[in-house]
Design a protein around this nucleic acid. Structure first.
Lengths: 224, 224
DNA sequence: TCAAAAGTGTTGTGTGTACACCCATGT
DNA sequence: ACATGGGTGTACACACAACACTTTTGA
């Protein structure tokens, strides 16, 4: 099977999460070419020779979403010889969290469509991309126990209920409102803003923002 | 600089930890060839086209130590274009834990020497291998908080003091004896053996063993 | 008999969890 | 006036951290 193959190819695939319409979603592209033509896949591409891995992932991200300056983390490198038909393609997978407000999706000639798909209700995927998404969800949940990365999915200003919703979407379970707020207000670095939501639905809610990402600094864990 | 380079090369490097002579050590080889001839390095090698990543790491491990069936985990993939002079070499780094009893080290024509080096007192290393070792130590400490992987470094039968010593060597700090034993006996899955050490030094100590590695099963964390 | 390592419990403090009612606003 | 989501406090259980003396053996 590998007779005619001379070299490894190295790609990066980026699992891009967002929250939109009250759903935790990932960005998928529909493949324009074989293999797996017309199948949905995680956006990805070849790593350039003079480009480091993080930069390659950021480039993919920017190509699809025009977004920069976001949370990005190397996930795992997948290299099963059978993961890609008729070639040896090792992929260094990343995952990213972005805010879904004002994002313009775009795609190039390698795909015919690009759109968000709820992570708990995915279509059939190309390659081992199902496994990659499952792994990234697992990782994101682990991260969430220690660091408030859910901020990355929210707009600048948010209510505590919105923050809690994002946690619940990621963890896939309900959290206690009072315990959550206690933890968030003491454990995270939240700025209480002098503003309230203006007639969102019924009673106005306090808005908060956060200063900087305290990723490695805080190590108390949050919410089981 | 990358004018004449056409392809990526993909290697795996394995940080192999053990405890010997009361020291936490890693296995290093002295390079026989350029680049970095005569410099110490982590054992590694090219990934074969038909080999998956874990198998490649296991192969490297077996080549140097003749050991199989050990704890092995993918660490991180390092791919800075400048990490390797005059070539683009992406390395998928692993770390492994092995028992140092009855290990025969060996090496091939790519190295002139192989030996254990205390992780807290390393020589000058080739490439970005210092960074890789630091990263693997960090990862091992994180793992240790949740899973009793230190078992992997100990012989079949061990005393609680030996177990504690291994924790202290990895974490780089002293632990409280009573708290450690309480935690170990309630939190880990230890088998109390009907044996004692025979006149090791003074008073005989109870020997213990463990059943299987309960890596992902137990999620109470151990010892800060 | 002494030196050296083995072994053993209690208490305080902090963190996670469970749980139910009133409040402010728009309609 | 009422429906809707916003907001608040206490009590219990459990995990971690600090801390000092007695026991068993070999020399």
């Amino acid at each position: 099977m590998f007779n005619e193959i001379k070299t490894h190819e190295v790609t990066t695939d980026v699992v891009i999460f967002t929250i939109q319409q009250n759903k935790l979603s990932v960005l998928l592209v529909k493949r324009a070419n074989e293999p797996f033509k017309d199948r949905w896949a995680i956006p990805g591409g070849f790593i350039r020779l003079s480009e480091n891995l993080d930069d390659a992932a950021l480039r993919i991200l920017k190509e699809k979403t025009n977004v920069e300056n976001i949370y990005l983390e190397q996930l795992y490198t997948f290299g099963d010889p059978l993961r890609y038909p008729n070639a040896r393609v090792i992929t260094c997978a990343y995952f990213a969290l972005i805010r879904s407000d004002d994002i313009e999706l775009s795609f190039d000639q390698t795909s015919t469509e690009v759109s968000w798909h709820e992570v708990y209700n995915l279509p059939k995927l190309a390659f081992d991309h199902k496994e990659i998404i499952e792994y990234s969800l697992k990782r994101m949940r682990e991260r969430l126990e220690f660091c408030p990365i859910a901020f990355q999915l929210l707009p600048e200003k948010f209510t505590l209920t919105e923050l809690q919703k994002s946690y619940e979407l990621i963890l896939g379970k309900k959290l206690d409102k009072r315990n959550f707020r206690k933890k968030a207000l003491t454990g995270f670095i939240l700025k209480e803003l002098p503003e309230m939501t203006k007639s969102g639905s019924k009673r106005p809610a306090r808005l908060y923002s956060f200063d900087k990402i305290t990723l490695d600094s805080k190590r108390g864990h949050f919410f089981s």
